[in-house]
């Protein structure tokens, strides 16, 4: 197991290196310059020299890699002038993290509950209602939800504040209340995904042979469902849930825009559209790291959760 993890981590490092190298060249292909149209030519020359943009591409790349290895990741060019890129990212992390974690707290139990309800009552009204909800949530984009929630519940009815309350102290009652709408908007999609998975898995588990045996040995339907069917259907759910955990740092740009949340969501698009090279690479790096780690954790989690993989290795004994 340890050897496997080490191998995977080395592969991750290589992948990250390739990612930032490709990004390095790719973002310089996007039209746009460090200063906009009509800027003073002397200033433009000085800015280009400052960021080595007047040197040949390969030389820029070498400088970039050297700096990267000595942990000098550069500063933001236009978006957050002169601030080190990771400071910028780190500043936005707490809020995004909190929102996403709350969203998970709602998404996972709700999704599981809906999935279980739908599977247990397959083909009844409950099941159809839940399935309709799933299709709806999956098709309608999160920003439509966000806009609707904001318009009806905040603007028209006034039950919630229109914006995230940034004045109130971090995690205070007032701020938490203002987080309800954006968290809901972020959750709808995830609920649908988990519900679908759970319903399918549980339904399969319920009609399996071991359920029959469980009942045959005297467990009631409820006991058999909880002790056997549910446990078995949770295992494939790792596939869906672990990536959700890992995506706690990804921001939803549109939801953040609508509720005035200074999170990570708009950072990526903002940095690309203003040709903020270093910030863009830093963000890509952070997200790639998270994604790769997520994949690794999912693979490992299967090994931990599913005993067939953990202990297996194909050997059965007489």
């Amino acid at each position: 197991m340890a050897k496997y993890i080490v191998k995977r981590i080395l592969a991750m490092v290589l992948t990250l290196f390739i990612i930032i190298s490709i990004s390095f060249f790719a973002i310089r292909l996007i039209p746009g310059d460090v200063l906009g149209e009509g800027a003073n030519p002397e200033l433009r020359a000085a800015m280009r020299a400052r960021y080595h943009l007047d040197k040949p591409l390969i030389e820029q790349y070498v400088i970039f890699i050297k700096n990267f290895l000595s942990f000098d990741f550069g500063e933001s060019i236009n978006l957050y002038p002169r601030r080190p890129v990771f400071d910028v990212i780190a500043e936005k992390v707490p809020l995004t993290l909190v929102l996403n974690i709350f969203s998970l707290i709602i998404t996972i139990p709700t999704g599981i509950a809906c999935g279980i309800a739908a599977a247990l009552k397959k083909n009844t009204l409950t099941d159809h209602a839940i399935s309709t909800m799933v299709v709806f949530n999956v098709s309608v984009p999160s920003f439509v939800f966000a806009s609707l929630l904001q318009y009806f519940l905040a603007y028209k009815l006034g039950w919630f504040p229109i914006l995230l309350d940034l004045k109130a102290p971090f995690m205070s009652g007032a701020q938490l209340w203002s987080m309800v709408l954006p968290v809901l908007a972020l959750s709808f999609g995830g609920i649908a995904t988990i519900t679908r998975y759970m319903r399918a898995e549980l339904f399969e588990a319920l009609s399996s042979e071991y359920m029959l045996l469980a009942r045959a040995k005297g467990l009631t339907q409820l006991q058999a469902t909880v002790r056997h069917a549910l446990r078995n259907s949770f295992i494939p759910l790792c596939n869906v849930i672990v990536p959700m955990f890992m995506s706690v740092l990804s921001g939803s740009m549109v939801v953040e825009t609508i509720f005035n949340i200074p999170g990570l969501g708009s950072l990526m698009t903002g940095s690309i559209s203003t040709s903020d090279y270093y910030l863009t690479i830093a963000i890509l790096f952070v997200y790639s790291l998270i994604n790769l780690t997520s994949v690794l954790v999912v693979d490992l989690s299967y090994g931990i959760v599913d005993p067939r993989i953990r202990i297996g290795g194909g050997k059965t004994r007489e």
Binding site: S208, E209, Y210, L212, L213, A214, A216, H228, R231, N232, I235, D306, P307, R308
Partner: peptide, 13 residues
């Protein structure tokens, strides 16, 4: 009761 196929009768996990 005992059934026909013991592998699928037992809870695999």
């Amino acid at each position: 009761v005992i059934f026909q196929d013991p592998l699928s009768s037992l809870d695999p996990v």
